[in-house]
Computed example of a mutant assay.
Amino acid sequence: MDIWTYQSVEYVTVAGESWLASASEYPRSMRALWESRPWAPAVLPCGKVFDVISLPAVFGRKVLDELWSSGPGCGPVASYRGRTLLFVQPGAAARLRTLLAWEEWARDVPPLLCHGQGDAVTVPPVQRMVDAPDSPGLGAGRWIVAPDTREPWLPGAAVVLWACVRAARGRTGDRTVRV
Rank of each mutant, 00 (worst) to 15 (best):
A32G: 11
A32Y: 08
A32P: 06
W34S: 01
E35I: 07
E35C: 12
S36Q: 13
S36F: 09
S36A: 11
R37S: 14
R37T: 12
W39E: 15
W39R: 11
A40V: 07
A40P: 13
P41H: 11
A42W: 02
V43D: 14
V43Y: 07
L44Y: 04
L44C: 08
L44D: 05
P45S: 01
P45K: 02
C46Y: 04
C46R: 00
F50I: 00
D51Q: 01
D51N: 05
D51F: 00
V52W: 01
V52P: 04
I53K: 02
I53R: 01
L55M: 12
L55C: 10
L55I: 03
F59H: 08
G60D: 04
R61C: 04
R61H: 10
K62Q: 13
K62C: 01
L64T: 08
D65I: 02
D65E: 14
E66L: 07
E66K: 06
E66Y: 09
L67K: 09
L67C: 07
W68P: 04
W68G: 00
S69E: 13
S69I: 11
G71H: 00
G71I: 02
P72S: 14
P72A: 15
G73D: 06
G73I: 03
G73K: 01
C74Q: 06
C74E: 05
C74W: 07
G75K: 01
G75Q: 07
P76N: 11
V77S: 03
V77R: 07
A78D: 14
S79Y: 14
Y80K: 11
Y80S: 14
